[in-house]
Write a protein that binds this DNA or RNA. Sequence first.
DNA 1: GTCGTATGATCTATTTATAGATCAAACTTG
DNA 2: CAAGTTTGATCTATAAATAGATCATACGAC
Lengths: 112, 112
Amino acid sequence: MPRPADRPYSRYSEHAVALLGQLIRQSRIARAMTTAELAARAGISRGLIQRIEKGDMGCAIGAVFEVATIVGVPLFYSDPRTLAAEVDRQRDRLTLLPKAVHTAEIKAKDDF
Amino acid sequence: MPRPADRPYSRYSEHAVALLGQLIRQSRIARAMTTAELAARAGISRGLIQRIEKGDMGCAIGAVFEVATIVGVPLFYSDPRTLAAEVDRQRDRLTLLPKAVHTAEIKAKDDF
DNA sequence: GTCGTATGATCTATTTATAGATCAAACTTG
DNA sequence: CAAGTTTGATCTATAAATAGATCATACGAC
């Protein structure tokens, strides 16, 4: 059944989203921007800014990343300029991999 | 008007989402997991896995981060164990900042 | 302390994301 | 090459995210 809100999330991903929201808020305040300004710039509503800064798991990743970009919170480890090239490099690496995974027997262990 | 789909995104955030999707896909294949398996583990549908790997900006950040966590794609630069502490440290840092931004005069320049 | 503003919370209407199923095509293995 | 499976795409119904407005509170400047 569909339920994008009350999903069992791992602590790690919850913390990651929470941290990202905090970093956004700190960077926004450091730049002396109001939530309304930031919302206008990102083309979203002020309420969504509040949810993003609070670490809401249901926010669209596009909105979150866009806001982070505006206030200068770096996504990933790489710097902004290298990111585009990284996408290309990654695409090439992807073509070398098998197109389909057949009968996955190796059960990956996820210890978080 | 509400339109979470056709928003004007910056190239940077689009690239970041695309890269994250590619990394997830690569990591999934490297671990020999099918999209169905990954979906089941994350508690989401297979179609959502496809959208995530494709770099869809509308996917919930919680779903994306959860999937990334399962296949072992590191969010942020810090390692998983330090992340929780980082959230706390960041919260403390946040309390030292002004609670509200008044009359933002310093227009932050966003050159991306 | 007072005034103006930012913030947080809440509500409704509407758009959108998501689940779930299905089908054809492409792939991997033997 | 053949068999079985994965993948990608598409469709429908439903739940949820988002915008937009409003209000009370808290904050910062003066």
